[in-house]
């Protein structure tokens, strides 16, 4: 009886563990089975490097290069804004902040992670768009804020994981607190901080709703920080409602490209984290 119970429990746990693998496998299957034929039909080069996206023209063009670049630019901008602030915040939280203040700031940062992206979108429309317009810049600023909790949390734990004797060694040579932190602790936490950046990139590139609300979303080659831009995610969400036929499949193929990006980011994250340990 006892043995049977054990067996059943083991099977239950095995199945629950399997469910996430199954989900990933199913996503892969449906994404690829719908997307790859479309890429084949359009032509991989035409699809990935085409600069024109006009699905309702005759004949239609399905080039997603504008959106690929849009996603990359917006993400890069978010990194430029979010990473320095995030890493410095992490240094502050890990090595400078008095305990009382920590109890206020840390939950604040965590709360930032829990805010729904549509709320960020509203914030962007109300606070950023009036200054920067519906533009790439607005999207960069907003995403920069949105990746903060990820960057802060992961960098902070990376900095905390650096053995204290590095810090003491630096102090014992006559280095001040800040020099010890920035020249010894932070370099020692390098791979953890990089992992934080990579996760931030993942968050930024996959973000959809908030970006749509501030980015302008014109499907054309990105030209300027102050002009509108459309990302891969935005492209899918905006057109999926009415798309049919090849147009619909091209949007799914856009999802495939996004999926590949995320895959690359996740693999680099695991590699970096392996190095950090």
């Amino acid at each position: 009886m006892q043995a049977l119970k054990e067996k059943i429990m083991r099977a239950v746990f095995f199945l629950t563990a399997l469910s996430s693998i199954l989900a990933v496998a199913l996503i892969c299957y449906f994404l690829l089975s719908n997307g790859l034929p479309a890429i084949g039909e359009i032509g991989p080069q035409e699809f990935l490097l085409g600069e024109e996206w006009s699905p309702s023209d005759t004949p239609p063009s399905f080039g997603i290069l504008p959106m690929i670049l849009g996603s990359l630019y917006v993400t890069a901008g978010a990194i430029v804004i979010g990473v320095p602030i995030g890493v410095l915040s992490a240094v502050f939280l890990a090595r400078v902040c008095p305990k009382k203040l920590y109890k206020v700031i840390k939950p604040g940062v965590d709360l930032l992670a829990g805010i729904p992206s549509v709320v960020y979108g509203f914030f962007g429309m109300a606070a950023i768009v009036p200054l920067a317009g519906n533009s790439m810049l607005s999207a960069c600023i907003l995403l920069g804020v949105m990746i903060l909790p990820t960057v802060v949390a992961i960098s902070e734990s990376a900095i905390r994981a650096v053995p204290e004797h590095y810090y003491e060694g630096a102090l014992a040579l006559g280095a001040g607190h800040y020099r010890s932190v920035f020249r010894v602790l932070l370099p020692a936490a390098k791979s953890g901080v990089l992992a934080a950046v990579v996760l931030g990139v993942g968050r930024a590139i996959g973000e959809t709703m908030a970006v749509i609300m501030v980015a302008g979303n014109q499907a054309r080659m990105p030209v300027s920080l102050f002009k509108g831009v459309r990302t891969l995610t935005a492209n899918i969400v905006i057109e999926m409602g009415y798309a049919t036929g090849l147009h619909r499949d091209a949007l799914i193929a856009t999802g495939v490209v996004l999926f590949v990006f995320i895959l690359i980011i996740n693999i680099s994250f695991s590699v970096l984290r392996g190095k950090a340990l």
Partner: peptide, 15 residues
């Protein structure tokens, strides 16, 4: 601390 150097129990070269 510049005038009085210190060497620790566990070797602690920086990474």
């Amino acid at each position: 601390r510049k005038r009085v150097g210190m060497v620790f129990q566990k070797p602690n070269p920086f990474p």
